[in-house]
Design a binder for these strands. Structure first.
Lengths: 335, 335
DNA sequence: GAGCTTGATGAAACTGGTTACATCTGTCAA
DNA sequence: TTGACAGATGTAACCAGTTTCATCAAGCTC
């Protein structure tokens, strides 16, 4: 019952012929209708409808040199932190009439480099990267194509690419100092893979900067389940730490749920602290003390930066976003 | 210190001239290197490096008629259900060498139609929609451009576009029947906006299909905070319901946290059930009884469907994914 | 009625690739 | 020695738009 597929997509010349005008006139109807007499315009518009003409994006792009989309490379969409970032990025890019192509890298620099190449192959006008740890191939790609590229989630003013993000060292330092300030001297730190993730590495460095506490490290990935596994490890210890710092809220929530499961009260029996301030953090019970990272504002800033670079060739400045301690219910003074 | 930006991007002819060969040869070096003598190939490759030549994606696209990306329109990235969907979609599309452009609509059909137009303007080869409730302009766009488009999260075999998704009516019916089976006859149902969201509407219809229980409805949006607000409402009632069914896990978790905050035990004091089976559901304490929707498999199926349509003009079949009851710890027989 | 301006339209060049077809060179068999 | 054939390369057309510049007609002034 479907209408037969027209043998071929019609183009400008087809329309011009059908309307009895030149291609230039059709082009004008499309881009500057007011310069065309209403009478001819209507003829042309009728032909366009008749032939179901849809201008080819590629042909436009070849003339303007613009494709109007940028690519973003993130480790995963599973973690709300990146989803929130992309939401803000996409939202703000829309204001500059730019679209967002998303590619996930699974934290693998090789895959990231491949996907970046793929984005360039389809015509991305700019790249938004996560972190500052990338494959040489990717740097070479950026160098070769001279594509505008910024690094996010990480502030590093001496870095080759403009960075827009946080001082991840300071972030965990803030958290550690807060816990130490509450009297905790025996702290479990739960984190994700540090080998491929520069933010985790920086956060671990921040932890190490605070020397007046004993720290035990637990490395178990970045998921809720990983947090739960870590919690089981932690409570098995002969002498339990008095506080747990998780370098991501997702982990912290996993830890919290597992502690609850074992009847361990937070913060009465043990203090728990997260990092990122995801929507869940303020809503769980007890509400999670954490370090707020303004990920949405960062996403917007990244959008503005890459848009300005792409549109007006304005190379953006590095941009630092301050973390804020969110003191809530999951931490208490050491009893 | 940066090297001066070359006044202009170099193109095929520039390279050809520099290497002392024809444009055809350069093109061959790019696309079929084995057909070119090693000696000439090297000359050309040297020129390419020298001039920092990068082939134009648009020019390629104009010849192949392919842009190699599809667009996905989702209500939001804030809810993990869509993030998971997109993750699977992007992942699987990659296997067909297709990229994914993401656009968020905020559940507004007008915005959705605009963004869809935007996606077409930049050359999307296919569209993946959420749900089956769309603006007439969007249908018109699909009709006019004849772009492959599928609807997801919703199975509706009589729908114009191929649908890949669930029977949302059955999903909530399953949940209701389970609760009734546990002896609950006074159930609170918490849901998001039904005016713009067809899935919510279908789920409400499923609830209404189960008639042997008294149902009280609470409408408060789809966030954790909305769940908490609903919980406060629910416990204010003179006679509390014995079970709460939330038409989304996010809401259910919000309800759970608020109940915990008020010292109300789940499931001893009240049974709680969610829907979707997000990663959080199985990890919270008590683990949430819910209806599992295979969102990742659906995302993969959507990718395969749209890829097959775009690449091989195979119009996909409607595809139904079965929900599974996940009986966990948050529900109990009515005491 | 000649001269000038203004507005609408068309012809053709141009964007940057791919590719059909022609040409040229060299090898080998008859 | 010639013809056949294969392999490498070049010429030019082609994709589907935009844009420059020329042309032409209408309207206005003097």
């Amino acid at each position: 019952m479907k209408p037969e597929r027209p043998r071929k997509r019609s183009n400008l010349r087809d329309v011009a012929k059908a309307a009895g005008v030149s291609v230039a006139t059709v082009s004008r109807v499309l881009n500057a209708p007011q310069t065309v007499t209403p009478k001819t315009r209507e003829k042309v518009e009728a032909a366009i409808r008749e032939l179901r003409f849809v201008p080819s994006a590629a042909a436009r792009a070849i003339n303007s040199g613009r494709t109007r989309f940028v690519g973003a490379l993130v480790p995963t969409l599973d973690n709300a932190i990146f989803a929130k970032f992309l939401a803000a990025l996409e939202q703000k890019l829309g204001q500059s009439n730019l679209s967002l192509v998303v590619a996930t890298t699974g934290n693998d620099p090789k895959i990231e480099a491949e996907k970046a190449q793929g984005l360039m192959n389809i015509g991305a006008e700019g790249l938004v990267l996560s972190g500052i740890h990338h494959d040489p191939t990717l740097y070479e790609l950026i160098e070769r194509t001279q594509v505008p590229a910024i690094a996010t989630s990480y502030y590093a003013p001496q870095y080759d690419l403009p960075t827009i993000g946080y001082d991840n060292v300071l972030t965990s330092e803030t958290a550690m100092k807060y816990l130490v300030g509450l009297g905790h001297t025996d702290i479990a730190v739960v984190h994700g893979q540090s080998d491929t993730n520069d933010r985790t590495r920086a956060r671990l460095a921040g932890v190490a900067n605070v020397t007046n506490a004993k720290v035990r490290y637990y490395n178990n990935g970045l998921s809720l389940m990983d947090g739960r596994v870590a919690a089981r490890e932690i409570i098995k210890a002969d002498v339990r730490p008095t506080a747990i710092l998780c370098l991501s809220d997702v982990i912290a929530m996993g830890v919290l749920f597992e502690l609850q499961r074992h009847g361990i009260s937070v913060p009465d029996d043990i203090s728990l602290m997260g990092m990122d301030d995801l929507p869940g953090a303020s809503n769980v019970y007890p509400a999670l003390t954490t370090v707020h990272l303004p990920v949405s504002r960062m996403g917007e800033a990244a959008a503005v930066a890459i848009a300005g670079w792409v549109e007006d060739r304005e190379v953006p400045e590095h941009r630092l976003f301050e973390p804020t301690l969110m003191e809530r219910e999951s931490t208490a003074r050491r009893s």
